[in-house]
Write a protein that binds this DNA or RNA. Structure first.
Lengths: 200, 200
DNA sequence: ATGTATTAATTCATACTATGCATCAATTCG
DNA sequence: CGAATTGATGCATAGTATGAATTAATACAT
């Protein structure tokens, strides 16, 4: 999961990071729709073609580190602790993702920007939801592996779908009525608890 | 909710329908990515520009009648029957949507095509999920209106998010393992029951 | 019935996303 | 040091989506 080679890989990550930072700055400055990929590349001092070498689409530059969070949750499920029951594992997995968001993207302002844009830019919202869905599939499989005799495939995906659906819906609702970070987090917790009790 | 004017509106709906049918036929024939908007317009004997007059994007031609289903669900919630409790109303609303899909899009083959493509074409999947989300917002508001003293805004959106998330995740899982229509519907019911019991 | 207002559809132009392909230049490795 | 790998670039192009101006058919008021 770490770097394979030295200099070459480091340079690659540096341009990647430059692209992300340029994009964030420009998005905050001019708004998502008024920034073109060409501008981002220009600000990061690379060719426009290079942008698509690092990101599949314009939207992905804002979802760059989402995979890390999914991995955390998967790990949380795989490392099921002794005596831990289904709802506890699920809640802990979600908590991992939320916690990572809060202390890695919140200080940089990336979380706020992403939240704001996800609520206002349809293309980004769609892409984010799609990411959630693919993450759900992985989470459901991991959960089924952790509770093989309790969960069938459908129940596992339904459960994870309910959890992710509830948490993201409540978060979005909180965001859209102008709640701050703490209130958003509370809304997410509330949603988690609601779903968790359905399997208690 | 019905037609306002006569001939003009009828003609408009006719070209709209022609676009949908042309698109479905071409998608089935050549695959989603290998069909351009220009081809669809051509097959429907209209200008390419006209396509975007009826649909916001290429993907939307396959999600044309989704709004009708949402309206059905909203109606189901608004017409809360005497003595009906929260889970019953929610289940009935979801059932309305599912039933409508089954007896309006299933015979025409549209449901199957959409299901197949939603599972394989990222752009379409993303768009579909986004539609679900906006529908969720409306459903949550309606639900809160129906149970004003029982539900706060966050709980309402969490509940609807859980329901929609669970149902769509289980449906997609069933689809992806090759289940037929009946098995998919059973998966959806199972997911509904799971979430419904969390508020019983 | 006639003139006026709407509006669906067309035409033309254009911005932008995204991808393919050939090439260059730097780094890794034998 | 020489060869292979690979990140970055330049060029070309398909395709989505939108804006603006125009046309022609429908709707409506008198």
């Amino acid at each position: 999961m770490v770097e394979k080679h030295g200099l070459r890989e480091r340079k690659k990550q540096r341009t990647r990071q430059a692209l992300i930072e340029a994009a964030v700055r420009l998005f905050e400055d001019k708004g998502y729709d008024h920034v073109t990929v060409a501008e981002i590349a220009d600000a990061a001092e690379v060719s426009p073609r290079t942008f698509f070498l690092h990101f599949q689409a314009k939207e992905d530059v804002l979802l760059a580190n989402a995979d890390v969070r999914v991995d955390l949750a998967l790990q949380a499920i795989a490392e099921r602790r002794a005596g831990e029951r289904l709802p506890e594992v699920l809640v802990r997995a979600m908590d991992q993702m939320i916690a990572n968001t809060w202390d890695s993207d919140l200080p940089s302002g990336l979380a706020a920007l992403r939240a704001r844009l996800a609520a206002s830019v349809p293309a980004l919202q769609a892409r984010l939801l799609q990411r959630y869905l693919t993450a759900q599939t992985e989470l459901a499989q991991a959960l089924q592996r952790a509770f093989p005799d309790r969960l069938d495939t459908i129940t596992a995906s339904a459960l994870v779908g309910a959890m992710v659906g509830a948490v993201s819906a409540s978060a979005l609702t909180a965001l859209q009525r102008g709640d701050g970070p703490d209130e958003v987090r509370n809304a997410m917790r509330q949603a988690m608890a609601l779903v968790a009790q359905s399997v208690s």
